[in-house]
Amino acid sequence: MTEQLADSVCIRIQPDEDMIQVFRLVTTALSNRVGLNLDQADDLNTALEELFRFVIAAVDEDSRFRIRYSVLSDRLEVTAEGVPLDLSDDSSKVNRYSRFVIDSITDDLCESPNPEGGYNILMVKYLST
């Protein structure tokens, strides 16, 4: 079956706690388009918020944080692009904690190098069948 990408949304925001509400609204709205239930939408929001807080601690106010949403027929993919920290680095307690939280509540979690620097962190939530 060919995957149908219905929407792709990219937001670029300041690493500021006040911005959490912005991406929570976007995540909830796009979760609705996919048909995720409230539990699933909230899991994705929690994972993204954890990642956001993880990044806030490491970047300055002038930097920007990119979040890309891909709305597919059976899932919502959320990618944090250019994350300056390696989430898979097990040497830090905070890394292990963030990874555990995100991994526990998303269906898929994948980290890959970003060609422009940093890492891309992909989080996926599938529509329940």
Partner: peptide, 29 residues
């Protein structure tokens, strides 16, 4: 026995989907 999605909440309450999303996230914050 499961969590509803936003369309279902909108259908039950008669509140638009946009207002459901706004309501849920505002309260959350």
């Amino acid at each position: 026995g499961r969590s509803p999605n936003i369309s279902e909440i909108a259908g039950i309450t008669g509140i638009s989907e946009e207002d459901v999303i706004e309501g849920l996230e505002s309260v959350e914050t």
